[in-house]
Amino acid sequence: MSIQHFRVALIPFFAAFCLPVFAHPETLVKVKDAEDQLGARVGYIELDLNSGKILESFRPEERFPMMSTFKVLLCGAVLSRVDAGQEQLGRRIHYSQNDLVEYSPVTEKHLTDGMTVRELCSAAITMSDNTAANLLLTTIGGPKELTAFLHNMGDHVTRLDRWEPELNEAIPNDERDTTMPAAMATTLRKLLTGELLTLASRQQLIDWMEADKVAGPLLRSALPAGWFIADKSGAGERGSRGIIAALGPDGKPSRIVVIYTTGSQATMDERNRQIAEIGASLIKHW
């Protein structure tokens, strides 16, 4: 067993022997301040990774656009098919120029040779490549099948209805392509620590998230040296922004954090800054 596999296998073990965790309302004060600064709703939840206990939450059962955070769930569904012998990570998928959609920095470079399922998941999570996500959605049967996968996990809230990039439209009061912070946090925890996926697939999923290259201005910008984070960000229309993450000190994750916002007129930089400040408060009061 590799060191990384050992780390993920012992996530519940280490967490069980940690000192009790206590909620700190100071972080919620910052979440509410972010709402004021952005002029928009902000949803927040913080779960203990081992027990699933909610440590703090704000608007945990209000719907927010998922945006690209759905790509972690998508690759979880792909990995479940791999575990069941219905898919192979090494299978190569070929596609054409007509398949390319807006923001496809990886797939646009491989029109000639195609990409493997493993490479597509890596591109979808680490670079948020939209064509990679659409190609992977095709392998599982489309958005409705991802929703069905989530329902089978016990998540009857999260739903995907459309493809990239239309799913980022974020129309107010439109339930399409949305989740709730509580539902997303619980589902992410199941994917990373539950028995739904094999140990190898859980490790692969967290490795992809740990290698995320496009979430630097968010929670990662607030992390002290030595902290662990595996995350996936999302951005959408109407001032929408979000991030889902597993993080913790001492090089291992111990909490799940989900943050979503929508309806702001603020710039992307300002949305990023507010999420980073929430992260800084979380870490300060850990």
Rank of each mutant, 00 (worst) to 15 (best):
P25Q: 13
E26I: 10
T27S: 07
L28G: 07
V29F: 12
V29P: 03
D33V: 12
A40L: 04
V42L: 11
I45N: 02
L47D: 03
S51Q: 09
I54C: 07
I54L: 12
F58M: 10
P60T: 12
P65M: 04
P65G: 02
M67L: 09
S68Y: 01
T69D: 00
K71A: 00
K71M: 01
K71D: 00
L74K: 01
A77W: 06
L79T: 04
V82A: 11
V82F: 06
D83G: 06
L89K: 04
R91C: 05
R92S: 09
R92Q: 12
H94A: 10
Y95N: 03
S96G: 14
Q97F: 14
D99R: 07
V101A: 08
V101K: 09
E102V: 15
E102T: 15
P105K: 06
V106W: 08
H110Q: 10
H110R: 13
L111V: 14
D113M: 10
R118H: 13
L120H: 02
A123Q: 04
I125S: 01
T126S: 11
N130R: 01
N134R: 02
L135N: 03
T139S: 15
E145A: 12
T147K: 08
G154A: 07
G154V: 03
G154F: 03
G154E: 11
D155F: 02
H156A: 12
D161V: 06
E164F: 03
E164D: 05
P165F: 04
N168W: 04
I171E: 15
A182D: 09
A183Y: 11
K190D: 15
L191G: 01
L192R: 01
T193Y: 11
G194L: 08
L205C: 00
W208E: 04
W208I: 03
M209W: 02
K213L: 12
G216P: 05
G216E: 07
L219G: 01
S221R: 13
S221L: 09
P224H: 06
I229W: 03
D231E: 06
D231G: 05
K232P: 00
A235G: 10
A235M: 06
E237T: 12
S240G: 12
P249F: 05
D250K: 14
S254F: 09
V257Q: 03
I259T: 05
T261W: 04
T262P: 03
S264D: 05
M268G: 08
R273P: 04
Q274M: 13
I278E: 01
I283T: 09
